[in-house]
Design a protein around this nucleic acid. Structure first.
Lengths: 264, 264
DNA sequence: GGCTTTTAAATCATCATACAATAAAGTTGC
DNA sequence: GCAACTTTATTGTATGATGATTTAAAAGCC
């Protein structure tokens, strides 16, 4: 409202190319929701006002709102308006939603949930992968592992390789539910630990364990694979804990850990 | 259901009330995709033709397609048309998608994946629930359990109570990822075993185990809770296996278990 | 004749406007 | 003062036009 002007439509002078705006508008609105500019429970501006705010026609605004509605972020009722849903209703397993939450994800305290889920799921996935992984998948894992090893002093590349490793691992479980969850795990990995904060020796340990997991898959050793996955996630948990300590130190207010669930 | 002539648009004579059509149109298109009327890889009719087919304006068609696209069912490109995505790209964790797949879900061979996922996730969820469940949640579980017990000879009601039981259980884990997965588990429960096919003694066993789980949660006994969840899912797995045998017996052609993935 | 470039056509993407349906708020009648 | 009616604002849907983009045909060049 106050300082809006989101897109490049600034001065109405230039013809203002508008190819494929909808995706961007959807993301813009979603981001404004995630950033609490439109907090949960509030109703966002009328569609006509949204047209002015985002500089597009009502068609685009509507299509965007319908997409957001289909992912549980908002809920439109005739004559009333479009209200922002409670965060519990959001489809946080949806890849788009996770991307939109992106930087704000830390404020939704779902990183802990994601890590817990990973600790539950990835060992099982590793076990299934030990049974079912194809030679190609094992090769892909090996490649990802090599890339991790070769970029042990490049946090960016390391994280990227780590992400693909876990993506391929979940895929190699040949379980469609686990496969679909990889986007959530991805977000957990990507945003949980801003790569730079993870100590180098932590990366070294991770490389060792990841390598052992690949070897276990080659040998079709289910229990070893499960064990490696467990250890990998212990490392991740430790890093997240470190991260949290840093975070808590940065902002003064200490936060009781579990009281957030009762706020509704 | 199958042959219904999608809407009431048949003869153009009557005024044809059209409030809130979009949701229905979206579901109709989705169903036509799930039923393979528009198989994966094919491109569906032009938007203008879709207007005629479903008897609505292009606005509605577009909004519907955008929603479907946002859930990974289709993918539209300019000039090309809207192509049906491969099933691997579908958001099978999305509640709407699962509902649309509904009766056809058995053909997507994801029931096995869902059961596997449940066996992985629900024991962990039970363990967390033993720590974190509120008194209210335990009471809700108890209610669901009583309803299961009281409708032990009413397959419909039994399944319904079973579904809510597992929904509440996942919710009581206070893990947002698990909570979100309950829709998938729901579909797994609802369609995996057409209630009537499950033998009565199977239900009796289930009632016992569910009751023990509630008790374990009351006592905050994590290992007992996990154990009960395991046993519950062993029962479910057995029922699904029975179901599969029946299914395989019904249609003559015997099917090698894993070859279905290669049919596309 | 074969290859490259240009032009054209088809279809999606967006816009603008209009009408219908709906539910809140205001108004009138008693 | 309350109930029924009317007004009005906003979303839902319909319609047609324009712009953008890619496939494909047509034209030009060697």
């Amino acid at each position: 409202m106050e300082s809006l002007e989101r897109q490049e439509h600034g001065s109405s002078a230039q013809p203002a190319r508008r190819p494929r705006v909808r995706r961007n508008v959807t993301a813009s609105i979603a981001e404004d929701i995630c950033s609490e500019r439109y907090p949960s429970g509030s109703i966002l501006p009328r569609e006509n006002d949204l047209c002015a705010i985002y500089g597009v026609s009502r068609t685009v605004i509507r299509e965007s709102l319908k997409v957001l509605e289909s992912k549980g972020l908002v809920r439109g009722k005739p004559r009333i308006g479009t209200t922002v849903c409670d965060k519990d209703d959001w489809n946080i397993l949806d890849q788009d939603v996770l991307e939109w939450m992106g930087p704000y994800i830390a404020q939704f305290d779902i990183l802990g949930s994601i890590l817990e889920a990973r600790r539950t799921i990835e060992p099982a996935a590793a076990e299934y992968a030990a049974e079912r992984a194809t030679a190609q998948e094992i090769a892909d894992l090996d490649n990802a592992w090599r890339q991790m090893r070769d970029s042990s002093d490049d946090p960016e590349g390391f994280t990227e390789a780590d992400v693909t490793f876990h993506k391929v691992l979940l895929s190699a479980s040949h379980n469609q539910v686990f496969r679909r969850l990889s986007s959530a795990m991805h977000a957990g990995l990507k945003y949980a630990l801003h790569a730079s904060n993870v100590a180098a020796h932590s990366r070294d340990e991770a490389i060792i364990v990841h390598g052992e997991l690949v070897e276990a898959l080659r040998l079709r050793n289910r229990t070893a694979a499960r064990d490696c996955a467990h250890r990998m996630l212990d490392l991740a948990a430790r890093d997240l804990a470190v991260e949290r300590r840093l975070e808590d130190g940065r902002r003064i207010k200490p936060e009781t850990s579990k009281s957030a669930a009762a706020d509704r």
